[in-house]
Structure formats: structure tokens, C-alpha cells
Nucleic acid binder design. Structure first.
Ligand code: FES
Ligand code: FES
Lengths: 142, 142
DNA sequence: ATTAACTGATACTAACTTAGTATCAGAATT
DNA sequence: AATTCTGATACTAAGTTAGTATCAGTTAAT
């Protein structure tokens, strides 16, 4: 059961990469090279992130992209939602045969509790936090 | 982001259905009719559950399937693993460029923590628990 | 003014996955 | 012998995923 697809994966990595270079515009080409992400694929991903306001862009030579929000305010949950839609366990697991009152359905609540928990946890993992962790690891190594 | 696919969904529902009829063998046809699950699809799912030991089977007329384990010992996590493989967030999210020491990788740990939590929660949701909840709802309605 | 380095938008493709169907063989009951 | 069941396995259509390609427009440098 794969949770994150390539779009989300690459998006998070691109955002981290941008978070590490807060000043100036960074080209898609540069990120692609640095992270080993297929160029055209990354371009499409960045375009979506731009549409969603997570990153800003500047056209033309010397242009590129940069973060549009504070890294600590970008949760992985948000990125997942953009590229994979809201976390949903199952549209409705037990149908009318077993369960007629959807509204008060205990089973449904059980499942949705997990759903919410996952979302909450992925929200707490922000780009800012990942960068901090990353720097901590670097410091330890050195 | 869909967490459960149809195989898992149908499998859980079939297991609940079997848990509600502990005595005797139940045919795939009967479950299919009761739950509105496509017959041939359900057959294939049951065959897998049998191979995995979650249900027992008896061939021939008057045969069918029945639970092979105590319902409270069948967690949804186990069913997910059978039909969708182990929950895994991402093979490796940040590659060598960002993160050379996989073993001690903080980022990886962060993600795997969530992974483990999801698994744990889905383990706690057993077929037995779902049946109990279901009966509680029924009682309230009546 | 031209060229080069960029993004914006969008169309396309191959490979894989999912959901569902079909078939034939064999076992137990009647 | 007929019927009702599982065991094994092959097949298909539709959808998704990952990746590619193209053309148009913008900015900067020369
Ligand atoms: S109504 Fe869907 S699980 Fe109860
Ligand atoms: S080594 Fe894969 S995330 Fe660090």
C-alpha cells in the first residue's frame, strides 16, 4: 500500500530544496538537476504548486520559483491533498445492507477517526520541520 | 487519496458477514447476494483469504467457507496487508542527494512513525470490534 | 533587435493497476 | 448422475501513474 505517489514525493523534495535557498529565484532546471527529478515532470508539478500558491514564480531569463509561504506553514498533508486528493479510507465501507444510518454509523466513525489522525500527523510534518531535521542530521555528521 | 481498495473493502465485509454466522458453512454465492459483491470477484478474494488461513473452506455441495480465526484476532491491518501489501509511505523520500545515511535518517523516521501508527490503529480495528459496534448500532435503532 | 533562459498551458504516451469476468477441473452431497 | 460447491488461473476494459513533448509568451542580457 503506497501512500505517497511520485508527484507528492517530488513536490516535497522540491519544496525542501527551495526552503534551503530562501533568497532569489531558482529555475526548475536547477532543482531537477540537484534532486534528480525528471525535468518536464517537475515542471508540471511546480506549475501546480504555483497555481495553489505554495510557490511564487517569475517568468523569463533569470526567473524561476521560490517558496510562497513560510516553510513551517507548509504541511505535507497539504501537498498530499493537492496531488492525491483528501485522505479517504473508503467511500462507504458497509453499504445499506449492513448499515442504514450513515450519519450515526459507528463503523464509519471508527474509520474516519484514523483518517483524521493521519491527516493531523501529516499536517504536523511541515517543510520547515523537515529542513530543521535535515540540518540537525548534517550537523551530527560533521 | 484512497486508502482501501475494493478487494480489501469486500474482504472486510465478507469477514464481518461470516463473523455474524459462526455456525456452519456459508457459500460464496450467499455472501455475494447478501453483500452485493460481484460473485466471481468475491470468489477470488475468498480464495486468497483461505490461502492465508483467515477463513476455512469445505468443497462440494453443502460446503462453503467460515472464519478460520477468532474475529477479535483479525485486524483490518492484516487484511490490508494481504490485498494491498504493507503500508509504506515512500520507498525512500529523499535519496542520496539530501540524505546519505539511511539508517539514521531523521526524515525517514518521521515518516515511518506515521506509517507505524496507521498500522497499529488498523490492527486495533478487528472484525470482532466491528461486529460488536454493528450490534450496538442495531440495538440502539430497535 | 536578437538570442537565450525562463515559465504557462496543455496534449500525448507506455506501463501498470484495478475491478470485474470467465472457464475448467475436482470434491462432496443428494 | 446431477447438482452445488471450492481450487486454480487466464483474461479484459477502464483508469491511474509516471514521464515526455510542444508551443506560446515573458524577461534579461548582449
Ligand atoms: S453507512 Fe457506511 S459504514 Fe455505515
Ligand atoms: S535516506 Fe531516504 S529519507 Fe533519508
Amino acid at each position: 500500500m503506497k501512500v505517497l505517489n511520485k508527484e507528492t514525493d517530488y513536490a516535497v523534495r522540491a519544496l525542501i530544496s527551495l526552503g534551503l535557498k530562501p533568497e532569489g529565484w531558482v529555475s526548475a532546471k536547477a532543482i531537477s538537476d540537484e534532486q534528480g527529478i525528471p525535468y518536464q515532470f517537475l515542471r508540471r508539478i511546480l506549475q501546480e504548486l504555483i497555481r495553489q500558491g505554495l510557490v511564487l514564480s517569475k517568468e523569463g531569463a533569470g526567473g524561476g520559483v521560490r517558496l510562497g509561504k513560510n516553510p513551517v506553514e507548509i504541511g505535507v498533508a497539504e501537498v498530499i491533498e493537492i496531488f492525491q486528493g483528501k485522505v479517504q479510507v473508503s467511500e462507504c465501507m458497509f453499504r445499506k445492507q449492513l448499515c442504514s444510518n450513515r450519519a450515526n454509523c459507528v463503523l464509519r466513525h471508527e474509520i474516519m477517526r484514523i483518517e483524521q489522525m493521519v491527516n493531523q500527523e501529516f499536517s504536523k510534518v511541515t517543510i520547515g520541520k523537515l529542513i530543521a531535521d535535515l540540518k540537525a542530521v548534517e550537523a551530527m555528521k560533521g
